Amino acid sequence: MPSGQRVVLRHYPQGAMRASNFAIEDQVVLVPGDGEFLVRALYVSVDPMLRLFIDPAPLGGKMPPMPLGTTIPGPAVGEIVQSNHPEFSVGTIVEGRFGWQHHAVSNGAGVQRVNPKLGGPENALGIGGLPGFTAYVGLNVAGGVKSGQTFLVSGAAGAVGSAAGALIHARGGRVVGIAGGEAKCRYLVDQIGYDVAVDRHAPDFMEQLAKALPTGADVYFDNVGGPLLASVVPLLARGGLVLICGLMAQYQGDAESGVDHLPDVLRAVMFNSLRFQGFTQVGRDALRPAFEAELAELVASGRMKVAMHIEDGIERLPHAMAGLFDNSVTGKVVVRVGEISR
């Protein structure tokens, strides 16, 4: 059997997450049984929401904690190297929740074959995977992209935010993004298709944002939550929709603990007749064929740009995860841990 490594939870984070919360161990590679196959990982996904599940009291104690020493879960793309499964042959490139490890055994549940029309296999973890599908579902919940609509997207340089902006642009909508840093803002406009991107670190951030939204935003695609939400909702158009996709500002605890922003939000909701809608991609598999067809056409035609940040080596996974919060990068973050054998 092949050898490999895995990343495990060493310590529960206390406050901000650190690379030292994880450890890298040698992996015991299991033999696939009947109806199973062995996957060798190629790319492993790094996702901010994972932060919620590695606390000593996940989701405020609503879930039991992950035992220390457990392999970190999460999506990955890999190549099948052994198979006893009649529907998955050796050499097939697949995506699934294989975790942070070099090898995984699967029975095929929840596993998707990677669509080669979406470009490189790493795209199955980005624009063609969970981030892209989440953005697609959000726009479906919003009723699509209508002529004359303006969308505002927070966390615009992240995996879901960049996918949402690219989809809105490709569908002919006007899209304004919020990101951290001038370089990210330039990238969003020049490469992804944002009409305007505003630096949330700028001293005149709110003035710039108001100027970019002269008639307000019809839809606010929120990936951040926190104080930013309270600041932004007064800039929505009357009858506007707030789509709650993520709450990254709150995954490591509220940076402004003790500050109650709810009155400001409710005031904007009342005065502007706003609507709030949370959503998830769970249970939306019926949309997947249409999603893949649209994405494949957009990528092939060059009308959609792919934003990826790739690091190399399984030892980079803990650092990449901590970096999502300490030193955010543009696009979907993945770590390459293997190469296709053929």
Rank of each mutant, 00 (worst) to 15 (best):
M63T: 07
Q27C: 00
G69D: 07
L50N: 14
A57L: 10
G74W: 01
L52V: 05
R40C: 00
P58Y: 07
F37I: 06
I24C: 13
G61K: 10
P67H: 02
G74F: 03
M17D: 07
F53T: 12
D26F: 04
I72G: 00
G69R: 12
A57N: 14
P64M: 03
D47P: 13
V46I: 15
V31Q: 15
I24Y: 11
E25F: 09
L59Y: 10
L59E: 09
E36V: 02
A23P: 13
Y12T: 01
D55L: 13
V29M: 08
V29Q: 09
P48S: 06
I54Q: 08
M63W: 11
I72W: 02
L38V: 08
R51A: 03
D47I: 08
S20H: 10
F37W: 07
L68Q: 12
L30T: 09
I24N: 11
P32S: 00
A41C: 13
M63Q: 14
P64W: 00
P65N: 06
L68W: 12
M66K: 11
P73N: 04
D26A: 14
L68Y: 13
V29F: 03
G69Y: 07
V44I: 15
P64D: 10
Y43Q: 04
R40M: 02
P65T: 01
L52P: 04
T70G: 04
D34L: 08
V28G: 07
P48C: 03
K62Y: 11
G69H: 09
E36N: 08
F37G: 00
G74T: 06
G74V: 05
R40V: 02
P56N: 09
P48I: 04
D55V: 00
G60A: 10
A41D: 13
P67Q: 07
Y12E: 04
E36G: 01
I72L: 15
P75N: 08
R40T: 01
G69A: 02
V28L: 12
P32T: 02
P48R: 02
L68R: 12
Q14I: 03
G35W: 04
L50A: 10
G61R: 09
P75S: 03
G35C: 03
R18L: 11
L30H: 13
G69P: 12
L30G: 07
A16N: 13
T71I: 15
L30W: 05
P56E: 10
L42S: 09
P73C: 00
A57C: 03
L50F: 14
R40A: 06
P32Y: 00
G35P: 10
L68C: 13
G33E: 03
V29N: 06
V44W: 07
V31Y: 00
E36W: 00
L68P: 13
V44Q: 11
P75W: 05
R51G: 05
L68A: 09
L42G: 14
Q27R: 08
P32I: 04
S45H: 12
L30F: 01
S45M: 09
M49W: 14
A16K: 14
G15A: 04
V44S: 08
Y43F: 15
Q14M: 04
A23T: 12
V44E: 07
L42E: 08
H11P: 03
P58E: 00
D26N: 14
Q27G: 01
G74C: 10
M17F: 12
L68S: 11
K62E: 12
E36Y: 05
